[in-house]
């Protein structure tokens, strides 16, 4: 199976939030009690029970108002920071493109709940069940079980406007490029094409991405590759540094003739 993706065309979104409701109902996520939000986008942010939100942005430029509605969820990175950060292999990027959390999706419970994945994710996606005694990390799973059945994700199915388009990532990229090339209104960038090494979910928009909650000039290198650049030195440091220390110790020991190892741990003299 080709790696799947979703193209989110912000110009088409009407903020109907059917995708949010579909996500909650399909995934049996409990709705929660919220209060008035001036921006109309309660609950406003992703959490353990809300895997996707549509955030509203009002952009006012010389009296002109623009109002944009932007669905947010896990980006399903090509090389996920969450996966690389997890020292128990609790996240995995599947061949379908979904990045899933194994304890809940596959029932493979290795997670220790350290939340380093949350620190690692550049999009602030993984969320924690803070109120549970035995909490899990939660996030959009790209409706993995639906993908396996050849179905679209629940949110994509629910979207009335064609804002969300599901398909092979490569084909979506081509379509996204074609859309932004053929229409001068688009901002000339496909968010997710290169960001952090690329993501399965791709965005196109008619306003700069930084105005709709995305960081723009971010690394094009994947986050795992950063850590790996450092981690790969570990064995060298271990043995190299160990050898240096051993050598030094031997060398200085001969110099400090009087040095007596015993003395170091000799009992403290009695009164």
């Amino acid at each position: 199976m080709m790696s799947k993706g979703v193209l989110v065309d912000v110009t088409r979104c009407i903020g109907c939030r059917s995708c949010m409701v579909a996500c909650k109902t399909w995934n049996d996520l409990p709705p929660k009690k919220t209060t008035f939000s001036n921006t109309w986008d309660s609950p406003g942010k992703i959490d353990a029970d809300t895997w996707t939100v549509v955030n509203y942005y009002i952009i006012e430029e010389d009296g002109q108002v623009k109002w944009r509605f932007v669905k947010k969820q896990c980006m399903h990175c090509n090389e996920p920071a969450c996966e690389s950060a997890c020292f128990t292999h609790s996240f995995v990027k599947t061949k379908e493109g979904a990045v899933i959390y194994k304890p809940t999706v596959l029932n493979q419970d290795y997670c220790v709940g350290c939340r380093y994945c949350m620190i690692a994710c550049p999009f602030g996606v993984p969320a924690f069940q803070w109120e549970k005694a035995f909490p899990y990390v939660q996030k959009c799973k790209f409706c993995y079980e639906r993908l396996q059945e050849g179905m679209k994700p629940a949110c994509v199915t629910a979207c009335p406007t064609g804002t969300l388009k599901f398909g092979d990532r490569e084909e979506l990229l081509a379509e996204a490029r074609e859309r932004i090339d053929s229409n001068p209104n688009y901002y000339k960038k496909i968010y997710g094409e290169k960001e952090y090494g690329g993501t399965s979910w791709l965005y196109i928009s008619d306003v700069p991405f930084e105005k709709i909650g995305f960081k723009e000039d971010v690394s094009q290198k994947s986050i795992p590759s950063y850590t790996w650049d450092v981690l790969k030195w570990t064995p060298y440091i271990f043995f190299g540094w160990g050898a240096v220390l051993t050598a030094l110790r031997a060398y200085t020991k001969r110099r400090a003739e009087v040095h007596n190892e015993e003395e170091l741990y000799a009992p403290v003299e009695k009164d």
Binding site: V112, C114, F134, P135
Partner: peptide, 29 residues
């Protein structure tokens, strides 16, 4: 404090058995 902080403390031994060598935390641990 780590033990207090991790949500799924009963799994604390897991990292010994799952070689998440790509994680810095693995090394720290």
């Amino acid at each position: 404090s780590l033990f207090l902080d991790i949500g799924r403390w009963f799994n604390f031994w897991r990292p010994f058995f799952y070689w998440g060598y790509h994680s810095v935390l693995f090394e720290v641990f």
